[in-house]
Design a protein around this nucleic acid. Sequence first.
DNA 1: ATGTAC
Length: 459
Amino acid sequence: MKIIRETPYIWKIEKFGNMKVDAIVFTNSETIYSQEYHEAIQQLINVASLPGIVKAAYAMPDIHWGYGFPIGGVAAFDTDNGIISPGGVGFDINCGVRVMTTSLSYSEIKKYIDKLIKEIYNNIPVGVGSRTNFKFSVKEMKNIIENGAYWAINSNYGISEDLNNIEDRGKIKYTDFNTMSKEAIKRGSNELGTLGSGNHFIEIQKVGKIYNLEIAEKWGLFENQIVYTIHSGSRGLGHQIATDYIKILRDNLKEWNKKIPDKQLINAPFNSQYGQNYFLAMNGAANFAFANRQIMGHKIRKIFKEIFGTDVKLLYDITHNIAKLEEHIIDGKKKKLIIHRKGATRAFKNQPVLIPGDMGTSSYVLIGTEKSESLAFGSSAHGAGRVLGRRQAKRKLNSKDILTELKNKNIRIIAKSKGTIVEEAPEVYKNIDDVIEIIEKTGISKKIAKLIPIGVVKG
DNA sequence: ATGTAC
C-alpha cells in the first residue's frame, strides 16, 4: 500500500489490488498512520473496490470504524452501473443536526438554564426506547413519510419559513410507503418527536468566537447569543429499514454480492428493483427524521416563547447519514450520481455546515465551499469522531467524575442514563478543534462561529 | 445508532 502526501492535509492511497479508484483521506501527519485510523482506512479501501465507484473513496478527518463503510466516509456511485448500500448510509438513516437561534444574550438567560433544560426534558421524550404517549395511524404515517418536515409544519409544528433552512426543504420526493415494512411503520408510530439515546443530544449553547462577521450577521449569529442544537435521527423506524434491507439483499442478491470483500458491504445495483426499493424506503426514513427534528425544534421554540417571550429562527437542519441522488461534474460533464455520506455532512458552496463536538467542549457552524465541491463531492466532517469505544469508556471512566468536570466548566446537564454520560463523555471523543483545523486547512469548509455548551439534555 | 439479542 502506497500513501502519498498530496498536500499537508490530503493523503492519497493509490489504487491497488481490487480497488477501482484511489482513496483520499483528509487528515494531518499525526493521525494518518495511527492505530485508530488503521481499521477505518482498511474499510475505505474495501469501499473503493465496489462496482461503479466514481473518482475516489473519501475519508473525513473524523473517520472511525463502522458497519462495512467507515463512519466519516463519502462514496459516489454511477447511477447506471454503480451500487447503493445500506452500510454506506448507516443504521440511523438521516441522523442529523439542527441549530436554532434566539435573540437572547447569555446574560439574559443565565439564571434560567436549569429551568430551561428541565422544561425540555419534561416535554421531549429522551433515552433508550423513548416514546410518545400516543400512536399515529398507518394513514397518518404515510403522510409523514411522504412529506417529512412539510407535514410537521402543516401540523402546527413550525412556521413555513423553516422549510427554507432544511436540507431538501425537509422532504425528499423519491419515496414509496409500500417499500417500508409494517414493522418499521409500527415502530415509528409512537417515536415521532423523540430524541433517542447514544450520541443524540439537545444542547443550549452560547456563541463563542465569531470567525466571519459578515456571514455570521447574515445568518443571524452574534457573540454571546443563545442558540440550541438538536442531534437526532429516524429512531427505531430507520433502524428497522436498514435491518430489513440488509436481510432482503442478503437473501435475494447472493450471486451479485459474491465478491464483496466484507459481508457488511452488501449492496444492490442502484438501478435494480432491490436497489430502488431500498432507496425509496431509506428516503421515507429520512423524511421521518426531518419531521422528528422539526417537532423537537418547534417544541423548544415554544418553551423559549413561554419563558422569555422571544422568537426563535431555524439556522439550518442537515443530515449526515444518507445516500443522495445528485448531479456533479465528472470529466467536464454533468453526471447523476448516488452519493453515500455516512457520518459526513453535505457542504455545498455557501451552505451552513453544522459540526457538533462533545458536550464538554464546543461545536461549530461553518460554511460550505467551492473547494469542497471540487475535492469531495461537496462534503465535510460530521463530528469529533470517537477515540474510545463504548465498552472501553465504561471501563475507564465513571459518571461522577464527568459530572464534576462539567460542573467545573459551568455546564448543566440532565441525562436519563448514567451509562450514556460515560459513553458520551468528552474524553471519548477526539478534540473537535483538531478536526475543524484540518477542515479549514483543506478548505472543504470555513469556520463561521463556535458554539459553547451551557445546558445539555441527554438520553 | 437500536424495543443494546433471534
